[in-house]
């Protein structure tokens, strides 16, 4: 019997914060790709569904020293001690061993929101409202992504539907492994500045693996030990310093943009 094993990958991305201009194309592309419904009229910035949010952070200085950085934040796809996986009472969250992607299965989710409390990156979103699309807009929904009902949690999965499509294409031609060019998340595609490099971090030839090891690459909250697969990079030291949580309250107050 031939083995059904595929080469295991550990997908990740490196976001160049020096290139990001905060346009939000990534967030829009993400919402379209993943069937995120238009926000309810009474939703606030804390009750919306933003799998990928772009956060503006300032260096807290006065003009003319004032500088800002835009930080796109999605699920950081933790590797070790994934905080959300172990807490889910009913196995609605797991890690796909073939891609390293942390899943969220809406049809299994109870909506207890324990995973949201557990996530240090606030990358998980709850459906506070019923999803509704304007008449006729359902026709634009992506069939590779299920829509979520009210009362469940959802989050970024590196456009897993695109990986499935790439996988099916390879399989139709008898190949087990996908062509890396066939699998790129929507945000990566959409970025006009090409600020996001995506790929298999375990493949030393991939651009993402190389970029993740470059000098000014870093990850947020690394000391929590969750081993995120989303890297950032910046040549500006003050931006890199945002990665750690160790800070006095005053400094934190000042840097809020």
């Amino acid at each position: 019997m031939e083995s059904a094993e595929t080469t295991l990958a550990r997908y990740g991305m490196v976001i160049d914060l020096d290139r990001c201009n905060g346009c939000g194309a990534c967030a829009t592309a993400c919402a379209v790709e993943n069937n995120v419904p238009p926000a309810n009229t009474s939703a606030t910035e804390r009750t919306g569904l933003t799998w990928l949010r772009v956060q503006r952070v300032s260096n807290g200085r006065q003009f003319p020293q004032n500088r800002a950085v835009y930080i796109p934040i999605s699920c950081q796809q933790c590797g070790e001690h994934t905080p959300c996986v172990s807490v889910c009472p009913q196995n609605a969250v797991d890690v796909n061993p073939e891609t390293g992607v942390v899943s969220q299965v809406p049809a299994r989710c109870l909506g207890c929101r324990y995973c949201m409390a557990a996530c240090p990156f606030h990358a998980r979103y709850f459906n506070w409202f019923d999803p509704k699309w304007p008449d006729g807009m359902e026709a634009t929904l992506n069939p590779d992504v299920s829509i979520r009902m009210r009362g469940v949690v959802e989050k970024c999965n590196f456009c897993h539907g695109r990986w499935q499509a790439a996988k099916a294409k390879a399989a139709a031609n008898g190949a087990r492994d996908i062509d890396p060019a066939d699998y790129v998340p929507a945000c990566v595609d959409a970025c006009p500045e090409k600020a996001i490099t995506f790929g298999n971090l375990d493949d030393p030839r991939s651009d993402a693996a190389r970029a993740s090891k470059s000098a000014n690459a870093f990850r947020f909250l690394e000391k929590l030990g969750t081993d995120p697969k989303v890297y950032y990079r910046s040549d500006r030291a003050w931006v890199r310093r945002l990665a750690d949580a160790d800070v006095t309250a005053r400094e934190s107050e000042a840097s809020r943009g």
Partner: peptide, 26 residues
Amino acid sequence: VDVGQPLRAWFTFWHPNVHSMLTEVT
């Protein structure tokens, strides 16, 4: 009332994640 999908409460018994403290609590 607090959970988003109360009718799925039985999932915890049918598909329990034994690593979760919440499973044990339930």
